[in-house]
Design a protein around this nucleic acid. Structure first.
Lengths: 342, 342
DNA sequence: CTGTTAGCGCTTTCAG
DNA sequence: CTGAAAGCGCTAACAG
């Protein structure tokens, strides 16, 4: 049974008043007599009135929707960030439309097109590993829609930005490896186009050199993606060489975990022969054996803060706006896949 | 620099024609002369015209938004289902608004309120483990908004439904355990209010009895949630008893994985002393050691099909509608945490 | 082939 | 205190 939604004038007619009176009453305007208000409110409830957001939006040019674009949603990292985002946004009356770029620039551009059409009031985005141009973002900003870039940077694009200090996290991890006696530390890095991956690599390199170790190019590898099979594949190459590393710092937990079966299968022990450190602290990482040492990231906060900053920008959009730049602190979580400090 | 979005009449004015001509031209109406069309299209592009969905929606009472409510989004299961859903919906011009109920009935009800306010054209929902009443769903249906229930059933609620055959998956898993020589098979079941959990339990029970084994109530436990620590906690109780099971069938992979460290720590071997089977086939499950035997579910298809059915209902909503009921087939994936067939 | 008009549901002047 | 009227951007009769 399809019932039309009740409208303002439905209430107005039922009460023999005008639509504007009803509108004002519902907005608790001081211009309306108490009794009128009460009867209006009662009738609204009786008719199960719900204001039509589209009409309101049409009027004040707002959709109360914010767009989110992430590379993917099935992994722990972005799903958790979205979680934080949503928990914040929920209480503001805003809704989230989420799109996945699948690490494809074209899909990302297409999504932005869709979101632009949907007239979102703001955008939160983490770019793909293919994204090198900002034209699509610039177009968004030119039409006055606030944008927050999070986790992965879009260099040269001016906007609010919220990141995790990847450099610091990587530095700590590698520094820790060195302090536990490791010298030949390999790095399984991610796609070099991503700022996160570049930062982690820099952290790795700096930790080495500051500890008097010359980085060995042979030990610096790049995986094409962030899944366990990427780790599995690349570790086979690495372990087939004569000089085997005594530690591995992987770009994330998934890659690290992909290496574990191969390492053990070669008769090597973790951490006695090879220490292993990941990045992200995924929920499962502590359940592997040995449990995985990793760098925890404040992902939930990352999403939450991005949401807070965007909403702030949307609601009190000033003429002159100072873009924010936030850097959240990660934390090394030591478990069994690395040796104890000596 | 905030530029107003171009409107139909902007184009009309620039070309000295009426707004309706522009509208018709843009819709490629046969009533419009080719030259007019061309000039309109050119001008639309020049002004970067984007039709205002809110105005259109206001007119034809559609938002082109469909609401999605899932218990959570950070786990592999629902994230992947949403993935499938989104991949389908993407090409239809519809957008998704996703909400998480966090297994709370109140949050679920509140989300439905929000989605109703947002005037979504349809709803896809997997209810919480607390949901026992359908009043909120009924209200939705009464206002004529198509609903698809997926994965977890809302008994007695009439709508399209898409599930995985949990009974069948569980039966296969337990039958396999028995065929590999296990007799004392424990079940770590999930919240009994969930149809999925009840079906899995029934599959477990039937597999036992059909193989001439009397179920042992001592071996049938219930975990409060779906995380590894739930498994960790409950397995400690179980292994503290004198009669230790020779196999465990867990409600999902996460719970199964939570038990692994405890089992091994007690000096028991998997699968020689205890076979272990999970449910879901999460991405990491094959990387544990031993790798986890599990029941794979067609999650992506689950989401995709739910989307397809909903869109079909929305687009060709007939007067008389036969609700669909789809049951997708899971598949047992045998790995190292269970013994080979004898 | 094209223009005029009305109206989707709501808010907001401007008049009473 | 309340009503009438205009308009957000678009489409769909109804006229030419």
């Amino acid at each position: 049974m399809k019932r039309r939604h009740a409208t303002l004038s439905d209430i107005a007619k039922a009460l023999n008043v005008s639509a504007s009176t009803v509108s004002r009453a519902l907005h608790d305007s001081p211009l309306i007599r108490k009794e009128t208000k009460d009867s209006v409110i009662a009738m609204a409830k009786a008719l199960n009135y719900q204001p039509n957001q589209q009409a309101i939006g049409l009027l004040n040019k707002k959709t109360k929707i914010i767009g989110v674009i992430v590379p993917e949603i099935t992994g722990y990292f972005f799903a958790t960030a979205i979680n934080g985002l949503q928990d914040f946004v929920e209480n503001t009356g805003y809704k989230l439309i989420i799109g996945q770029s699948n690490e494809s620039f074209d899909q990302e551009a297409k999504l932005m097109e869709t979101l632009s059409l949907a007239r979102v009031d703001g955008l939160i985005i983490s770019p793909t590993s293919e994204t090198t141009s900002n034209i699509h973002l610039e177009k968004f900003r030119e039409s006055g829609i606030p944008v927050v870039v999070f986790d992965r940077d879009c260099p040269n694009f001016l906007s609010d930005k919220v990141f995790v200090d990847d450099y610091e996290g990587a530095f700590q991890a590698v520094d820790y490896l060195i302090k536990t006696g490791c010298r030949k530390i390999a790095h399984l890095g991610g796609p070099a186009n991503l700022t996160t991956c570049r930062c982690r690599k820099r952290g790795y390199l700096d930790a080495l050199t500051q500890n008097g170790i010359t980085p060995d190019p042979q030990l610096i590898l790049e995986v094409p993606g962030f899944t366990p099979d990427c780790g599995e594949e690349i570790i086979r190459d690495l372990l087939d060489r004569e000089a085997i590393p005594d530690a591995i710092f992987a770009v994330n937990d998934a890659v690290a975990i992909g290496t574990m079966p191969v390492i053990l299968e070669k008769g090597l022990r973790i951490p006695q022969d090879i220490s292993l450190i990941g990045f992200d602290d995924e929920p499962y990482s502590q359940y592997f054996m040995p449990s995985l040492t990793t760098v925890w990231q404040p992902v939930y906060e990352l999403g939450l803060l991005s949401g807070r900053i965007l909403m702030n920008h949307i609601l009190h959009s000033p003429e002159e706006y100072d873009y924010r730049y936030e850097l959240l602190k990660p934390e090394l979580i030591v478990r069994q896949s690395s040796k104890p400090l000596v």
